[in-house]
Amino acid sequence: MSTSGTLIEVSDMSHGYTMAGERMTILKNLSFTIDFGEFVAIIGPSGSGKSTLMNMLGCLDVSDTGSYLLDGQEIRKLSDNKLAAIRNEKIGFIFQSFNLLPKLSAVENVELPLVYRGISHRQRRQLAEDALTKVGLGDRMHHRPAELSGGQQQRVAIARAMAGSPPILLADEPTGALDTRTGKEVMGMIRQLNEQGHTIILITHDLEIAEQANRIIRIQDGNLVEDRRKA
């Protein structure tokens, strides 16, 4: 895996759904590239298509047309199982609602992607503990999600996303379910991860959050209307 140059290359991506017999185009001929180490915010009002774009970038779905090269690999042609492997190795998800498994302890949650990667028990426990320590939850490893605050749960989710050191962290409204103060903490942590070299793609509708990124891509009605880099 290279660590510089183009990480994501989207060209002419279009996607739509048929809903109640009516064809709805959600993404219209999107093209952009994201380099290694960037901190990109994808911003747009609800219904703009940004969630669909996130599904595409996260390899949770494949677009109808166009091409999506991730780290030089065409995603659209891959089977479901191959997509699962790509998600496992290349993408760390941070969801708005954390999406931790309630029956597992913090450290077990963080281990989960590594389980699917087939890493040995001892090694993945080590990686998970390191990741949790990094997000400041070294003393909460064996707590269940229900025993943690929202901010702590999101930190567990961040630890889970980065434990396997994937090149991309994909954060979907990571502060949406948090109060302002913990939201700031979490954003600080995400910025810090970017400074450590992780590529961050942040999906949000909140301009204030988006402003913390180095680059803002604005989506409206399925079109890319703005691609602005901060100086």
């Binding site: 996260g58 699962a84 999406n99």
Partner: peptide, 16 residues
Amino acid sequence: TREIGVRKAIGAKKLD
């Protein structure tokens, strides 16, 4: 269902 979604998102294959 949601748990299955999460597991799949973080890399669980069909067989898993």
